[in-house]
Amino acid sequence: YKIYPYDSLIVTNSISVKLPKDVDRTRLERHLSPEEFQEVFGMSIEEFDRLALWKRNDLKKKALLF
């Protein structure tokens, strides 16, 4: 996945969300650098992957990456 800054990946309720063209809309968190991922989620990507799907989705919603 290509890395993008968190600010360019957050999704708000506005209709005209302009995400970069090559971003996987269903896995926005994968486009964060490991350092920024840790900062946003408070855990590593590996720890995040071990969580239940509902928990990952809940965290993504709170981080505006859903």
Rank of each mutant, 00 (worst) to 15 (best):
Y1S: 07
Y1H: 12
K2D: 07
K2S: 12
K2G: 07
K2E: 09
K2A: 13
I3T: 09
I3N: 05
Y4T: 02
Y4I: 06
Y4C: 03
Y4G: 01
P5Y: 03
P5Q: 05
Y6D: 01
Y6N: 01
Y6G: 01
Y6H: 03
Y6A: 02
D7K: 14
D7A: 15
D7S: 15
S8G: 04
L9I: 06
I10G: 02
I10E: 02
I10T: 07
I10F: 04
V11C: 10
V11Q: 14
T12Y: 15
N13A: 12
N13I: 06
S14Q: 13
S14G: 14
S14Y: 04
S14D: 15
S14H: 13
S14I: 12
S14N: 14
I15F: 10
S16W: 09
S16C: 15
S16K: 08
V17W: 03
V17R: 07
V17C: 15
K18P: 14
L19R: 05
P20F: 04
P20G: 05
K21G: 14
K21W: 12
K21H: 15
D22P: 03
D22I: 03
V23I: 09
V23T: 05
V23D: 01
D24A: 04
D24K: 04
D24V: 06
R25S: 10
R27C: 10
R27A: 11
E29C: 02
E29T: 00
R30C: 07
R30A: 07
R30I: 05
H31Q: 01
L32W: 01
S33G: 08
P34M: 13
E35C: 08
E35T: 11
E36P: 00
Q38G: 13
Q38C: 11
E39R: 14
E39F: 14
E39K: 14
E39T: 14
F41R: 00
F41H: 00
F41M: 06
G42H: 13
G42W: 07
M43H: 03
M43D: 00
M43Y: 04
S44K: 14
S44C: 10
I45G: 06
I45M: 09
E46C: 10
E46D: 13
E46T: 12
E46L: 12
E46A: 13
E47A: 12
F48M: 02
F48W: 07
L51S: 03
A52Q: 11
A52V: 09
A52M: 07
A52W: 06
A52D: 14
A52G: 09
L53D: 10
L53E: 13
L53S: 10
W54P: 12
W54G: 10
W54C: 11
W54I: 09
K55R: 12
K55L: 12
K55E: 15
R56I: 05
R56D: 00
R56H: 03
N57V: 12
D58F: 11
D58L: 11
D58N: 11
L59T: 02
L59C: 03
K60Y: 01
K61C: 09
K62T: 09
L64Y: 11
L64P: 01
L65W: 02
L65K: 01
F66H: 09
F66M: 10
